[in-house]
């Protein structure tokens, strides 16, 4: 066990856990922030995607000990009122079916748009290839990302 101080969604959290514990389980089990989902545990499905600084990372492969003072953003903190352009586009396009993978999809998509505000079709597909949607909402995911990109361009 070791003590860690983590800045998550703008708030400082103190926890005492096994240093090898992945951030996914720190968030879900210890901080009860369950928006970040467990899908595979080996960084293959993207359901657990969070932002470490500005980068989309798979929290199932991110030991708490490696976070240091880098800021973490989860789906719960992506926006204060659920009105990030990507979240709004996701609702307007009615992307989700079961909804389980969508937090991870949204975190990957929002990190992409931050770095590349106007991605091409191929750039969107490449960025999103690490996020599996078993229900098959891929065409809507692409459409929502384009809609969010346009919102950003126009605002």
């Amino acid at each position: 066990m070791a003590a860690f101080s983590l800045k998550i969604n703008g708030t400082q959290h103190e926890i005492n856990v096994d240093p090898t514990t992945p951030m996914l389980w720190v968030l879900r089990d210890h901080l009860h922030m369950v928006g970040t989902k467990y899908g595979c545990g080996i960084a293959q499905c993207g359901a657990c995607t969070i932002h470490l600084g500005d980068n989309a990372v798979r929290s199932c492969q991110l030991p708490v000990s490696s976070v240091g003072d880098q800021e973490i953003t989860t789906i719960e903190g992506l926006s204060e009122n659920g009105d990030h352009p990507v979240q709004k586009a996701w609702l307007e396009v009615d992307v989700p079916q079961c909804g389980y993978c969508q937090a991870g999809q949204i975190m990957t998509a929002s990190a992409l748009l931050k770095k590349n505000p106007n991605p091409s079709d191929t750039e969107i597909e490449n960025a999103m290839n690490g996020n599996i949607c078993r229900c098959g909402t891929y065409t809507r995911i692409r459409k929502a990302i384009k809609m969010a990109a346009n919102t950003n361009q126009n605002s």
Partner: peptide, 29 residues
Amino acid sequence: TDRLNVDGPKIVTGKPLFGIDVQEEGMLT
């Protein structure tokens, strides 16, 4: 007529919805 998913706002903001999200007092894994 087109009506948006009633759980949409909860899904896109990461609210607890699924079985795996259940948390109860004194619960073990």
